[in-house]
């Protein structure tokens, strides 16, 4: 038991707090570089996200007068630790599919909501009408995407005979036996839904409504500066790698690290990452009611269709 505890903590520190942030920075660079290339620009150098982070750490922290200071400063940490935990669960599942506990999928779904919630709390705590507006938009966005997201994730569960353990889902999708869920029709539909949801979870265009810079000046973050902002940015970067990995686990059979499989695995993650970036760069921002309507309308319909198809075995 002792060794197990140690192992978990090792994972948490190593993977959650060190590896994922670094991978997240890399993902953020990929995102920005692809964006730049789409826009016929050169784009930032490889270390740019790292320097941004370090620079923000070195800046002073300005706390808005009259704000709930403790909540204001603690909210970013809450989001960070939730993502770190999620990424620990995901990576340890990828490395050892046989570990993990039944139902970790649900836990992951719940934990993935926390970073957004941290943003909302921070925005509310900053006593700024603009931040409040942004935070409330973020909340509405969560309301919007939560339902189709749950349904789409359940598609993978249905395909793997009701397994709600991520490890089992990975094992089940072994190419020799069942094959990845994403190869099925319902899987494709679910991936479409999930990619849109990931877009919203990352608050990328077209769903960057909560922090629309040109409307409400980066919304909940408007008052943040220095290290707290750095932690928010880091959380965002970590989400940028964690969410694609999560989708890869659910729909593309996880990642493998033997021989050439590494390349293939990285390609799978990159696929989602680039997809997100491309959508981000070829769409204007929608309005919040349009976004909610989009998720509760077409996306939920597609997700329900995917669930029905999955139940019939397609």
């Amino acid at each position: 038991m002792e060794s197990l505890t140690l192992k978990y903590f090792g994972y948490f520190i190593g993977i959650g707090c060190i590896l994922t942030p670094l991978a997240g920075m890399l993902a953020s660079w990929v995102d920005r570089k692809v964006t730049a290339r789409v826009q016929w620009r050169v784009g930032p150098p490889l270390l740019q996200p790292f320097w941004d982070f370090v620079k923000l750490l070195g800046k002073e922290t300005v706390v808005p007068r009259g704000s709930a200071r403790t909540v204001f400063l603690m909210a970013p940490l809450l989001g960070f630790s939730a993502v770190a935990l999620v990424s620990t669960i995901l990576w340890s599942t990828i490395v050892h599919p046989e570990t993990g506990f039944v139902g970790d999928l649900i836990v992951v779904l719940y934990l993935l909501m926390i970073p957004s919630m941290a943003v909302i709390l921070g925005g509310f705590a900053s006593k700024n009408p603009i931040a409040s507006l942004g935070a409330s938009r973020e909340m509405k966005l969560i309301l919007g995407y939560e339902l189709p997201f749950i349904l789409a994730c359940l598609v993978a569960v249905i395909h793997t005979e009701g397994s709600i353990r991520l490890g089992e889902i990975i094992i089940y999708q072994n190419p020799e036996t069942y094959g990845p869920v994403g190869a099925k029709l319902s899987g494709i539909l679910a991936i479409i839904v999930c990619v849109m949801v990931v877009q919203a979870k990352l608050t990328c265009v077209p769903f960057d409504i909560p922090e629309a810079e040109t409307e409400i000046m980066s919304g909940p973050f408007v008052e943040y500066s220095g290290p707290p902002l750095a932690v928010y940015k880091l959380t965002r970067m970590m989400m940028l790698i964690t969410l694609p990995v999560f989708l890869v686990i659910l729909f593309l059979g996880g990642m493998h690290f033997q021989g050439w499989a590494i390349l293939w695995s990285i390609l799978k993650v990159l696929l989602f990452l680039v997809l997100v970036t491309l959508i981000r760069n070829t769409n204007p921002r929608v309005r919040i009611d349009q976004a909610v309507r989009f998720f509760w309308g077409p996306m939920t319909v597609i997700a329900v269709a995917a669930v029905i198809l999955a139940l019939t075995g397609n």
Partner: peptide, 21 residues
């Protein structure tokens, strides 16, 4: 914009002075 692209140097335009250097 594309011709000059200051992002090469890591320069970004931000929306709030709190983020600015």
């Amino acid at each position: 914009t594309p011709r000059f692209d200051l992002e090469r140097f890591g320069i970004q335009l931000v929306g709030s002075p709190r983020h600015a250097d």
